[in-house]
Structure formats: structure tokens, C-alpha cells
Computed example of a mutant assay.
Amino acid sequence: MSARSTACCVTPLVVGVLALLGLFATVRFSGDLGKAWAITYTAQAPGSAPYEVTYQDTKGRYPWEDTGIRRHTDPGTTGDWRREVVMADGKKARVTVTPAKGAVATCTILLDAHKTLATATSPAPGRPAVCEAAVGP
């Protein structure tokens, strides 16, 4: 086989491999793979009595990371409460605010600190306010 015929066969192979690598890099590093959302939870309960806030987030954002839901509790909260977290695409954002006996609580879930995804108020004094929303497009 001559050098010219070898170059003729190798060149399309090299071009094909480079095209596949470019396609892989585009998919691997594009924003469509591993979408995550900035979520802001807020909670309020009037008065000075402490209340409890339970909320969830995800540790990772990419499919090869742990994107399982993690739950957190802030007991003994007073005043206005706010937490910014990351949620992987397709998960549910959730916050529960349990007020003191006789008090009413409110909660809100915001997407990118601006768009309201959910808001709720305690159905009765002493009962929790629960906000929940699917995260994604």
C-alpha cells in the first residue's frame, strides 16, 4: 500500500474521530446535561416564639453525582428565615414551617430568587405551612 492510499484512508478516520470528540465535548459540557436550579426558601411566623423549618436540597447536579434529596431541619428559628439551595432538575423543592402552638406560619419557594413557585399559610393556628413545587422547565 502506498503512502498516498494510506493517507487517503486515514484522513477520513481522523476527521471522524475528531468530530465524535467534538460532539462528546458539546454534550458533556453543555447546560442541558446536569441542569440545576437556584431555589430560595423563606419562612415567617409572627411573634417571638420559636418555630421549626424543614427543607430539602440536592448535593449534586450532574447525573454521575449523588442527586438524591437531602432533608435539613432548623429547630428553634425566630424571625424571618431564608435559605438558598441547589436542586437538581426534575426534583421537588419542599419546605415545611411548623409554628408554635396558636401561631400561623407562611412559606415561599422562589426560583432564581424571583419567580414564585409556591406559597402557603398554615391552615390553622399551630398547624404547619407546606410549600412544594417541581423543579424544572
Rank of each mutant, 00 (worst) to 15 (best):
T6I: 15
K91N: 11
E52G: 04
D32I: 00
Y41L: 06
D112A: 13
F24W: 11
Q44T: 12
T6E: 09
G136C: 09
T106A: 13
T40C: 05
A129P: 09
S5H: 14
D74C: 07
A25P: 00
R61C: 06
C131A: 05
V14I: 15
C107E: 02
P99D: 05
E84D: 15
L23K: 01
V135Q: 04
P63T: 06
L18S: 13
T78C: 04
Y41T: 07
L117R: 05
H114V: 13
S122K: 03
T116D: 00
A3E: 15
T6L: 14
R61A: 14
T119A: 14
W37E: 10
W64S: 10
D74N: 11
T77I: 12
G68Y: 00
S30V: 06
Y41N: 04
G34F: 09
G34Y: 07
Y51T: 09
V130F: 03
P46D: 13
R94N: 09
T96D: 02
P125E: 03
Y55F: 15
T119V: 11
T78H: 09
V10L: 15
F24S: 12
T40Y: 00
T77E: 12
L21I: 11
L110V: 05
A25E: 10
S48E: 13
F29P: 07
K59V: 13
V14D: 01
A118I: 00
K35W: 00
V130L: 04
R71H: 01
A93C: 05
V95R: 07
R61F: 11
T11P: 04
L18F: 08
T77C: 05
T42Q: 11
G31Y: 02
F29Q: 02
A124K: 13
I69W: 06
G22A: 14
T119D: 14
K59F: 12
A49P: 00
W81P: 10
D32C: 00
A118P: 03
T119Y: 07
G34V: 01
S30T: 13
D66M: 04
P123Q: 12
P63L: 07
W37K: 03
W81Q: 05
G90M: 06
I109Y: 07
